[in-house]
Design a protein around this nucleic acid. Structure first.
Lengths: 234, 234
DNA sequence: GTAAAACTAGACGCCATTGTCTAAACCGTC
DNA sequence: GACGGTTTAGACAATGGCGTCTAGTTTTAC
């Protein structure tokens, strides 16, 4: 009886959300409660209430609290990694409009990967529960933050190869780009705030201006970015 | 009887550690356990065991778990703020040896304020318990991270005034300096690691090089920093 | 040395939570 | 409409932590 409840949706190892409405509802509610309360203080009853589901249903889908927690983290990690991949694919690939292209990219990076709900959730969890579940977040570190810097490093190398940038160490430049993009926002996000669109825009512009002052190829930007752009458009 | 136990050490409102060995031991143990487990999962019994103190003694000094928690946070905050003030006072005040001076400052900032135990503890707590105790961490934000950027902004302005730097927005530059100084280390500290001295040194050097490429006054560094320095010393 | 203050160990009631169990209700399909 | 699978509400024991209390011991001050 009890066993027959589980495999109705065949989840062959890999955690895929969606297939069942109840499962999705539980995952969302659990993410919400775990995020606000942390693992220890979160109660199954509250999760059930938020999910509009009985407690028994949760135990039907997830053997115990820890199983649910792991499923939630993996779900959020998958979403966050997919989003990061998507944002990385919008990195500007030409030297034209470099400042605007990088600025728009920085906005997307902050808005959809770092300052968004999933990003804050994962950073919060890795700090609070990282010691208890080292293997759980290790995969996120490799495929999230780790992949971000290596991918960004390669993308910057491409720009440098086309003479748009003058970079000696691509890994360092990649980390600095991310750090600069967050410079104006990290305190706000640390304290729970969410930046507005104007704040995102201004932070990205400040970051990219400094980044280009440090790494912009002097040969390529003799006349400055904006006049060039105006000349091309006009 | 119970009341008579408390005022043996007259603590007139302000929380000052030290005066009693037991108090100190309790505060240290509680900081350790709260830091590892978080507020909810931390148990008074474990704190008592770590402090080598009976549970009742804790309740004699601190009315309840939350009182103890607040005392711990205030204690750590005071230490961290004092350390930050001390580090800020070592900011280089002359344009000589600017790269080395800024690098050494960045090393101290990371080592003693950001990557150290208290810094990680406070960032961790503000994320996990910030929503529950908004007023508690607000004072830290103002006197810690807030003061860091405003003070750094003023210090950079002083350098700019002496023609050593060319900065348009001092606040932005201050935040960017901190962000760059952390760029190579933030992932490690997020995942619980502690950087070695070599890593601290390298991270600071990378940060300051980029910062000076962006903000170094071209007039003052025509020949580059090191040759100038060598000429002066030689 | 004595008395007050501080500390210890342990027991206790209370409460919240976890995870199980059961009987009843629901829902889609044949 | 019958039936298998799923959900629900609630009861239940077990656990563990908080905060209190008491009785006895150690430390400190005079």
């Amino acid at each position: 009886m009890k066993d027959s409840m589980i495999p109705a949706v065949r989840m062959a190892g890999h955690t895929q959300r969606g297939q069942c409405a109840k499962r999705m509802s539980i995952l969302d509610a659990a993410a919400d409660v775990f995020c606000r309360q942390g693992f220890a203080a979160a109660s199954i009853d509250e999760i059930a209430a938020v999910a509009c589901v009985s407690r028994q249903t949760i135990y039907n889908h997830y053997r115990e609290k820890e199983t649910l927690f792991v499923a939630v983290v993996e779900d959020v990690m998958n979403r966050a990694n997919a989003m990061l991949f998507s944002v990385l694919s919008t990195f500007p690939d030409s030297a034209d409009d470099l400042e605007d292209g990088l600025t728009a990219f920085a906005v997307r990076l902050n808005k959809n990967c770092i300052c968004n709900h999933d990003g804050k959730f994962l950073r919060k969890l890795v700090q609070t529960e990282g010691e208890r579940y080292p293997h759980l977040f290790e995969s996120w570190r490799q495929q999230g933050p780790g992949k971000l810097t290596t991918a960004l490093s390669a993308l910057l190398a491409r720009l440098a190869h086309s003479q748009a940038l003058a970079i000696d160490d691509f890994d360092v430049a990649a980390r600095q780009f991310v750090a600069l993009a967050n410079a104006d926002l990290q305190m706000m996000t640390l304290f729970g705030g969410t930046p507005s669109n104007e704040e995102l825009e201004k932070a990205a512009r400040n970051a990219v201006r400094t980044f280009l002052k440090a790494y912009g190829n002097p040969k390529a930007e003799k006349a400055g970015g904006e006049p060039q752009l105006a000349a091309i458009l006009g």
